[in-house]
């Protein structure tokens, strides 16, 4: 009887320990998601598909969807590749390398709102430091955040500056976990730097990379602070990403139904991309197991 009781409590213990976290996830994650999804079908207190119908004809929505995808198609690979390069560099055994590591991580410590305002000031057409440099070098003043062709890419540069140090640290942690004897064996076998990198280093840090790619995708898909604080979605909607469109619908225009529909669409996109990334990165493992 006592053994039975002990075994029951042993079985219950993990559930009990998980319960608070599960409750928080249910209340603060799952419930809002479901609530937003339901709201997207409610208009004037009644069930309606009109919001989705209007969205299907809404040029602003399609433009913001395209902008979101365009920005992320460039930004996610850029940040991941740069983070890998930076991690490889700061993983070198050199005197004073920790100083570089700290410098590269420094932008992460700055709040995104502070970073946005600082960059806005630095990019000011009249008095910004970027334009002073461009002017002094003879290139001439550029619109940067106020130019329809430059604004989105300047936000990509800013977000990359701000984010790479963070992702670099996860990859660096992965690199530190690789047994150095493997590199020595590869060297003895005559493998060059790039052969070692692509055949040993990257496959060995696959789990770190998977986390970085997935987390980076979610973070960048939901990026909107620079759009709110610097460009206001402009110029000419060129930085009006889906997340900013959601913010405007919910908090400026008081249109909960539209905000709900846009959030549901963004959520589906993020989930789809993340699932695809999981599938692709786990394919080799499955093939090995299979």
């Amino acid at each position: 009887m006592k053994t039975d009781q002990t075994s029951t409590y042993a079985k219950a213990a993990p559930y009990l320990m998980l319960a608070p976290a599960l409750a928080i996830i249910l209340i603060f994650k799952i419930y809002p998601i479901l609530s937003v999804f339901v709201k997207s079908f409610i208009r004037d207190g009644q069930f309606s598909l009109k919001t989705y119908y209007i969205l299907s004809q809404d040029a602003t929505f399609w433009n913001s969807l395209l902008t979101t995808l365009k920005m992320n198609v460039v930004m996610i690979p850029l940040q991941v590749i740069l983070s890998i390069i930076l991690a490889l560099l700061v993983n070198l055994q050199l005197k004073g390398i920790s100083v570089y590591r700290t410098l590269l991580y420094l932008p992460v410590t700055m709040a995104i709102s502070v970073a946005s305002i600082t960059w806005r000031m630095m990019a000011n057409y009249n008095s910004g430091v970027f334009n002073s440099i461009l002017s002094a070098t003879g290139i001439g003043r550029q619109g940067l955040f106020t130019d329809v062709h430059q604004a989105l890419w300047f936000i990509v540069i800013m977000a990359t500056w701000k984010g790479c140090g963070y992702w670099m640290m996860f990859i660096l942690a992965g690199l530190k976990g690789v047994d150095t004897s493997i590199y020595e064996s590869a060297k003895l076998d005559g493998a060059g730097y790039f052969k070692t990198l692509f055949s040993i280093t990257l496959p060995m840090i696959k789990n770190s990379l998977l986390f970085v790619i997935v987390a980076n995708t979610s973070a960048n898909m939901l990026l909107f602070a620079p759009m709110q604080l610097i460009t206001d979605g402009g110029p000419q909607n060129s930085t009006n990403v889906l997340m900013y469109e959601i913010y405007k619908s919910a908090f400026r225009n008081g249109n909960q139904s539209r905000a709900g529909a846009l959030t549901s669409i963004l959520l589906i996109i993020v989930l789809t991309v993340v699932i695809l990334q999981f599938k692709l990165l786990n394919r080799d493992k499955e093939e090995e197991n299979g």
Binding site: A59, T60, G143, D147, G233, G234, P235, Q236, N237
Partner: peptide
């Protein structure tokens, strides 16, 4: 946004058309 775009050098006709399109759906 229209006034800002024009101030920042965007094409006037394109900016007006974008604004009309945005508001038609809004």
């Amino acid at each position: 946004a229209l006034w800002d775009n024009v101030r920042n050098g965007a094409d006037v006709e394109d900016s007006v058309q974008n604004c009309v399109n945005d508001l038609n759906t809004a």
